[in-house]
């Protein structure tokens, strides 16, 4: 039975599915459990990206088609490239808007911008 290519892909796809969905659900749990926006962002931008990336990779492998696999890989690369960008933008916007860090925080060396009067 072992060495059978069907079995091999099935096992690989199953492993990717289980690991990817675990990462996704843990990222969601982290979103719920972490104390403030900035710590939550860690969960969403790392575990979340890896989770959906692995699931996409599983779909690509399961298709047994090089074009589909390449497409899935392109999607994976796209998520890995955009996740830090959106996390960075959101963190920057939140900090500039004045959302503070949790009380647990030990240090904040990023200077808070002086509150500007908003244009009409």
């Amino acid at each position: 039975m072992t060495g059978d290519p069907d079995m091999l892909t099935a096992v690989a796809v199953s492993a990717l599915l289980v690991i990817g969905s675990l990462f996704s659900v843990l990222a969601a749990l982290g979103l719920l459990r972490f104390p403030d926006l900035y710590t939550r962002m860690h969960a969403a931008s790392k575990a979340g990206t890896i989770g959906s990336g692995l699931l996409l990779l599983a779909a690509g492998i399961h298709a047994m088609d090089i074009a589909i696999l390449l497409r899935a890989l392109a999607g994976f690369a796209f998520f890995v490239l955009t996740a830090p960008l959106s996390a960075h933008l959101l963190a920057k916007a939140a900090h500039q808007a004045g959302y503070r860090l949790t009380n647990l925080s030990v240090t904040d060396q990023l200077p808070q911008p002086a509150p500007k009067s908003r244009p009409h």
Partner: peptide, 14 residues
């Protein structure tokens, strides 16, 4: 919302 989209992508892959 961002996380929701990420999980939805995983769901679609599954």
């Amino acid at each position: 919302l961002d996380m929701l989209v990420a999980i939805a992508i995983g769901l679609i892959a599954v």
